[in-house]
């Protein structure tokens, strides 16, 4: 490669990196972020989107450039350059993905930790009625550091028991003994779902919350989140569960505290909690 092309190449690489970061930062492919998880998730998404764009455009650019620049012109005969190997180059392009992967891995670990993924799942407030044999919680997302911060000075997360069946979600509020098909939660307060399926595997997904957890027969799972924006968001079953899988949807209603309290009192069967 002639020396004069070095500034051009460096310029192109800088343009690629800047362009990738700009695209990753400015193009939003995601729906509203309505939970504390979602903002953390979107941060990760932007970084991955930027890195992905840089790599994709870089490699595609190289391929297309090579195809045009090194295409066989009419009348041209003979072979290309007989370069079989280049150790420094090989080391270079082993190192680059390794560094990128290490960075992405560490970063996504950090994100996952902030979402509460590394927290112990036993902590949730659901240990009251369960038999000892079923105490083992099978996964999900524990209450994250963010919701822990929110919880300071307040009572624990709002517990809700979720039962999934073909083809509906049922929500049970142990505090007021409310049974409902629509999840109501107050904005800004941590919620802890304890989920179990009655028949086949379902999955509880709220795209606006960026969380998903399978609901498994025989094995309770936990999902904790803190909604941050009032509104009505879809709850979608994301695991094939039978013919009406596509229709297995519900709604989560995120309300201001007052509205939630009104709803709760209206539906509560347990008078003692209504104080």
């Amino acid at each position: 490669m002639p020396k004069s092309s070095a500034p051009l190449i460096i310029g192109l690489i800088i343009a690629l990196v800047v362009g990738g970061i700009l695209i990753g930062e400015n193009i939003n492919l995601l729906p509203v972020d309505a939970s504390s998880n979602a903002t953390v998730y979107d941060e990760l998404f932007k970084v991955l989107f930027s890195i992905g764009t840089i790599l994709f455009l870089g490699i595609v650019g190289l391929v297309i450039y090579s195809l045009i620049r090194f295409r066989r012109k009419p009348g041209q005969i003979g072979d290309g350059l007989a370069i079989e190997d280049n150790l420094p180059l090989e080391i270079f392009w082993t190192a680059v993905p390794t560094i990128v992967i290490l960075f992405v891995g560490l970063y996504s670990y950090d994100i996952y930790d902030r979402m509460g993924g590394m927290q112990s799942l036993q902590h949730a407030n659901h240990n009251s009625q369960q038999m000892a044999a079923n105490q083992r919680i099978w996964g999900g997302i524990g209450s994250g550091s963010i919701s822990a911060n929110n919880m300071e000075g307040k009572v624990g997360a709002l517990p809700v028991e979720v039962t999934a069946m073909q083809f509906a979600f049922l929500f049970h509020y142990p505090k007021g003994d409310i049974l409902t098909g629509e999840l109501h939660v107050p904005v800004g307060e941590p919620v802890s779902l304890r989920m179990e399926s009655k028949d086949v595997i379902h999955a509880f997904w709220v795209p606006e919350f960026r969380i998903k957890q399978d609901v498994i027969p025989g094995q309770p799972t936990i999902l904790n989140f803190t909604p941050t924006k009032p509104g009505r968001y879809p709850i979608i079953c994301a695991e094939l569960c039978g013919p009406y899988h596509g229709g297995m949807r519900s709604t989560v209603v995120v309300e201001e505290s007052n509205d939630y309290q009104t709803w709760f009192e209206k539906n509560s069967k347990d008078i003692t909690t209504q104080t």
Partner: peptide, 25 residues
């Protein structure tokens, strides 16, 4: 994630194979 490393190597090697060739399109 680490599967991306050997896979990436393969892709860079293919691009390097294209580079400087006499490619019949």
């Amino acid at each position: 994630s680490f599967i991306a490393v050997p896979t990436g190597i393969k892709f860079f090697n293919w691009v390097a194979t294209l580079w400087g060739g006499r490619i019949s399109l």
